[in-house]
Design a protein around this nucleic acid. Structure first.
Length: 876
RNA sequence: AGGGGCGUAGCCCAGAUGGUUUAGAGCGCUGCAGUCACAUUGCAGAGGUCAUCGGUUCGAGCCCGAUCGUCCCUACCA
């Protein structure tokens, strides 16, 4: 077979992905094996693959593939999230392009559009994942709003309501005026903003010539003012006690109240109180029984209740009212000010605190469930530092606002009765039954019930994901649920630790009394190579599929992984994908070499025997280490280790050691050992780079249809006791080879020119002579008492090696080299001697440590003696 | 404002419980190498007073304190 000198990923990748799915190799069914389960963090159904997904899904695929090869029954469940706000916003935008307003549609009509959009764009992202090589069990693909998941959500809502954990009430919530829905606290992001601090004059009712000054960032809310507040301990504002003041422009008279909440140092120490539009003012209002005037409409324009500026947008009012206040001489001054403004995570607009009727979930109960397992390590976080963040949040948790004024989502199963009141039930029929049962005598019809218009927060379905995927809510005793749950690892970003991770743990303990997963691997954020977040506006976010086209999926996977230590942000650089592609090419060419060998019946050279024994040790050592690294989720280090093992040790050293001279055949024993090694290396690499490893594994020997490296088992490897000695001997031999090569490089001696190597005294690794001869192109290695004149020397350990060069030798350069080394060694020896002559060190340090220092001393002394002698000879 | 992380070669990072011959990879950099698997390569090499200062110890990159720098999370200062 004639192989191209470069690896071309395109056809290889599609071929093997097809093969894997054709043979259903990603499928999992419960059996006798130990299960290994990952549920995908469901991407937004209408989303498109970005670099963050790439990282996340690559890591999951690596873990799943590794588990599979360790003999576990690996199951990776894919799916998508309905993402209510985001998707609804997209649908609204699309309708707007067709001049359709959401308000003009019925709920049913709108949902029809939303489903159409979902069908059209939904699942694109899952198709893209296939390009990456993701080994998901596609038959299990789920959606947070499919029938099974919806049923689970509704059931859980009803259950929690019956347990008294869900309540309905009027509270101050975060209102998104663009999406026109309430949001949870977690959906609000605080952004620093350069704004202004306005100082307004509030005249005293009883003393028309005097006024108090109030500093505010939001002058447009004065129409909602129902009090002014001072701190009772504030001496400078004592004169305001018990007074009544006039709201500027508005003319309404409001009382001055006193509360220690007010910061004496801020502004003038006078606070305007607007209970309807500020969380703190709301609390003050409750405490002091103040009226509340809601001056905003749901879309952020001013309502008739404001009296002024009705119908204008809140920000337009801010500009206008500044002018009007100034004109009326009610504006004392304006200062520049920096503060933090809460913005909607989805729409980006400033949040309006708003009093409204919403559904809430009591969280204290859940926090008590979810904290202990993380603190005790039943659920492990990687990296661990997130445990602190997690604990702090749970210890300060507030109730979760779960209702959204949206249509795209799970509709709240509460049904209002004509005479007031409501019932909560799984279906309208059950609701009717319940309503009639509660209501002795009277009998309602289905048409009398009016279902709540609101939908549930998306996360109210996501938090059930690991359970609902296996029907754990609806059929808690089913075989799949019992087998796959709890899942093994969760891979996600730290940004959704509260949104999702914490809440899954809560639901897990509430509904299964067990954790939803054992380990959480937090990935970092993918940034560009100079550390900026990737964003559309910066244009620094590469298209993952274009990268795959350019470097191959394996190359991109390697590029992602190389820069991704667990939990650290990753600075993505295309150059890393290039390195990945180059590595593929390297492996490809190693394969070309090996497959090109002719095998013949001939004795195995000694050098090959030594090389095989050594590489066997390297492999067993490495596989033990790889296993350990995997257990610590240190995936980038694992990949780096395999990369070096395959590129440097295998291709650079081992293959060169056993390689027959050009055109000559190889003996069968060495050939087969080499194939075995190659296969093992491919296996270790496969989870990281699935495509090229499958391609080469299939070519390495005859495989039956349906066989695959992805389901081949990794041998159980134990570190061999003699491995360390073998490896260290070879390291010495390599140092000798490198020594000779360095002389060649220095003296410009071609590799093909045969040299001689003299060993002064005892050769530390004479058993490796055949290797040294082959690798350094040496004909004779001999032990001498005294090295010959005109040779270039180097030290390995305490032994001096010399290469006779006759006239090629440059005495001056040799002297310089020896003197530099001598200086270094003498400095070193000085340090050692200082330690050893320290009485306290010798008496306090453990014997082994002291003995080691003595060994350092004698070695250094010996080397120095050798060097001095060399110098003497050179100088004579 | 509170809490946490980090600061080790030009860049990105490793360096369990302090002691393994005066700190290790990868990328980048420098020099050399062209018919022999691979220039998407090979060989050789340069490059670090482990942020700063102080302390504990026979011994500190590692432990303690302070300082500086940097990043993140949490929070209602109008």
């Amino acid at each position: 077979m004639e192989l191209a000198s470069k690896y071309s990923p395109q056809e290889v990748e599609s071929k093997w992905y097809q093969y894997w799915t054709d043979h259903q190799l990603f499928r999992s069914k419960p059996d006798q094996r130990e299960p290994y389960t990952i549920v995908i963090p469901p991407p937004n159904v209408t989303g498109v693959l970005h670099m963050g997904h790439m990282l996340n899904e690559t890591i999951q695929d690596i873990l799943v593939r590794r588990a599979r090869m360790e003999g576990k029954n690996a199951c990776w469940v894919p799916g998508t999230d309905h993402a209510s706000i985001a998707t609804e916003a997209k649908v609204v935008n699309r309708l707007a392009e067709q001049d359709i307003k959401k308000a003009d549609l019925t709920r049913e009509e709108f949902l029809k559009h939303a489903w159409a959009w979902t069908e059209e764009h939904g699942g694109i992202i899952l198709k893209q994942l296939r390009r990456l090589g993701a080994s998901c069990d596609w038959d299990r693909t789920a959606f947070t709003m499919d029938e099974e998941r919806s049923e689970s959500v509704i059931k859980v809502f009803c259950d929690l309501y019956r347990k008294g954990l869900i309540y309905r009430g009027v509270r101050m919530v975060n209102w998104d005026p663009k999406a026109q829905t309430a949001l949870s606290d977690e959906e609000v992001i605080y952004k620093e903003e350069h704004s202004k601090l306005y100082y307004l004059r509030y005249y005293i009712e009883s003393e028309p010539e005097k006024y108090a000054i109030v500093a505010t960032t939001r002058p447009e809310t004065i129409m909602g003012d129902t009090a002014m507040c001072i701190n009772p301990n504030d001496p400078k504002n004592q004169w305001l006690r018990g007074k009544r003041v006039i709201v500027p422009l508005v003319g309404r008279v409001i009382p001055v109240i006193e509360d220690e909440y007010v910061d004496i140092e801020f502004g003038t120490g006078c606070l305007k109180v607007t209970p309807a539009h500020d969380v703190n003012d709301y609390m003050l209002g409750e405490k002091h029984h103040l009226p509340s005037i809601d001056i905003f409409n749901d879309d952020g324009t001013l309502s008739p209740a404001a009296g002024l500026y009705v119908g204008m947008d809140r920000f337009a009012v801010r500009e206008q009212i500044e002018k009007d206040l100034a004109e009326a001489q009610l504006l004392e001054k304006v200062e520049d000010y920096t503060n933090k403004v809460g913005c909607s995570e989805r729409t980006g607009v400033a949040i309006e605190p708003k009093l409204s009727m919403q559904w809430f979930l009591k969280m204290k109960h859940f926090a008590d469930l979810a904290l202990p397992p993380v603190l005790s390590g039943d659920i492990k976080f990687h990296p661990q530092k997130y445990v602190n963040t997690y604990r702090y949040w749970l210890e300060n948790i507030k109730d979760w606002c779960i209702s959204r004024q949206l249509w795209w989502g799970h509709r709240i199963p509460a049904y209002y009765l004509p005479d007031g009141g409501y019932v909560v039930a799984e279906t309208p029929e059950l609701a009717l039954q319940q309503a009639n049962a509660n209501n002795s005598g009277k009998s309602y019809q289905l048409s009398d019930l009016r279902q709540d218009e609101d939908a549930l927060d998306t996360w109210f379905s996501s938090w059930l994901w690991p359970i609902s995927l296996f029907k754990g809510i609806n059929e808690p005793n089913n075989e799949e649920f019992r087998y796959y749950y709890p899942t093994s690892d969760l891979v996600t970003g730290p940004d959704i630790i509260f949104f999702w991770v914490a809440r899954m743990i809560m639901a897990g303990y509430e509904y299964t009394s067990r954790p939803p997963f054992r380990n959480v691997y937090f990935t970092g954020i993918v940034r560009d190579k100079i550390g900026r977040k990737m964003s559309k506006s910066l244009g620094n976010s590469p298209d993952p599929l274009a990268l795959i086209d350019k470097f191959g999926a394996d190359g991109v996977r390697m590029g992602m992984l190389l820069s991704a230590p667990a939990g650290n942000d990753i600075l993505f650089d295309e150059a890393l994908c290039e390195q990945g592609r180059n590595f593929c090419n390297k492996i490809w060419n190693a394969f070309r070499l090996v497959k090109g060998w002719q095998v013949s019946d001939q004795p195995q050279p000694e050098s090959a025997q030594v090389a095989i024994r050594w590489f066997q040790s390297m492999l067993s050592d490495a596989s033990v280490e790889i296993k350990d690294l995997f257990s610590k989720y240190r995936l980038n280090e694992t990949l780096m280790l395999i990369f070096r093992l395959l590129r440097d040790e295998f291709s650079g050293w081992y293959l060169e050691m056993v390689k027959p001279s050009y055109g000559s055949p190889i003996d069968a024993a060495t050939y087969h050992a080499t194939l075995t090694f190659f296969e093992r290396l491919l296996q270790e690499l496969h989870p990281f780079m699935p495509f090229i490893t499958e391609e080469l594994w299939q070519h390495l020997s005859d495989r039956k249809d349906g066989e695959s490296i992805m389901v081949s088992l990794l041998p159980q490897e134990h570190s061999q006791p003699e491995a360390a000695a073998i490896i260290s001997e070879m390291e010495t031999a390599k140092a000798i080879i490198t020594g000779v090569r360095a002389i060649r490089a220095e003296k410009n001696i071609a590799q093909k020119q045969v040299l001689q190597l003299d060993v002064t005294g005892t050769h530390p690794v004479s058993a490796y002579n055949t290797i040294i001869q082959k690798m350094a192109n040496i004909d004779v290695i001999q032990t001498v008492d005294k090295k010959s004149d005109g040779s270039s020397t180097f030290l390995v350990g305490t032994t001096e090696f010399s290469v006779p060069l006759g006239s090629l030798i440059n005495v001056e350069a040799e002297i310089q080299k020896a003197e530099a080394e001598l200086a270094h060694l003498e400095g070193f020896l000085k340090g050692v001697l200082a330690k050893l002559s320290n009485e306290k060190f010798v008496s306090h340090a453990p014997e082994a440590v002291v003995a080691l220092e003595r060994k350092k001393q004698s070695d250094a002394e010996q080397k120095i003696a050798t060097l001095k002698e060399t110098l003497q000879n050179l100088k004579k």
